[in-house]
Design a binder for these strands. Structure first.
Lengths: 127, 127
DNA sequence: CAGTTTAATGCAAATGATTATCAATGTCAA
DNA sequence: TTGACATTGATAATCATTTGCATTAAACTG
């Protein structure tokens, strides 16, 4: 554990998740401009391999990280208008997923559920 | 509609879906080696914009296309070992998704559910 | 401590998927 | 046929991410 890794990790956890490597890099830059993006990427990969961050790629060009410490499984509602992401959790969906997977002989290790749509805010302030 | 576009489209539909642009390019190459990948990418984008193909990006580096003609909504089970992808459909999950989204004030336009795990085949043939 | 091994940094260049550029070619209507 | 216009295909450009490598710093060793 080096100073730069510590700063990067702290910066990462300060966020609410869904952070891109570049986001983290920019934030880190403000505090320590000498840290290169290579180190940021490397550290995020380390955190990811250590199981403390998990990689998630939404449809846009680049990959995002979020803390993997939490025990709850959360999924995402993504507004296609303003890009806002909110998390949700639904045990009934979770258990149905397991059922479906079992039916197909799968042992599920992870899952990803994303609902794309228009959030209430955008719907109200639209045209 | 040009000959190369027709070939690319035909090739695309011959597949079962979840095809990457490069997959299509390679297949097209066998029949018409003079077609460049630029045309393949362009045509796939056209098909996608025309609503006849839909873009889907799983976690791996590149984007996949699948036919969008079907009326049913299907989701994916992805084996993290052999990469095999099978589709499934579950109305109960669908309706729960709508419920959850409504609760958060979202109007859902699309969704994506991916379950990652080990398929039965890989589980049986493993060490 | 001094010296040596080792790992981590940061810059720049490499990568890999995708997109844009552009000259050459094809299409088609007048 | 001629010109207007879209499409092609080869290549160069992009953009996020990786990697190579020389430099620096930390961690042992005696």
């Amino acid at each position: 554990m080096t100073p730069q890794r510590e700063l990067i990790a702290r910066t990462f956890f300060r966020n609410k998740g869904h952070v891109s490597a570049e986001d983290i890099y920019k934030q880190v830059q403000k505090r320590a401009p000498r840290i290169g993006f290579a180190t940021t990427y490397r550290t995020m990969k380390l955190l990811s391999e250590a199981g403390v961050a998990s990689l998630r790629s939404f449809g846009d060009g680049f990959s995002r990280y979020e803390p993997a410490l939490r025990t709850d499984h959360h999924d995402h509602l993504i507004c296609t208008q303003c890009g806002h992401i909110i998390e949700f959790e639904d045990d009934r969906i979770e258990s149905l997923q397991k059922t479906v997977a079992r039916k197909h002989g799968f042992r599920v290790t992870d899952h990803k559920l994303e609902l794309y749509g228009i959030c209430s805010h955008c719907r109200n302030t639209k045209k």
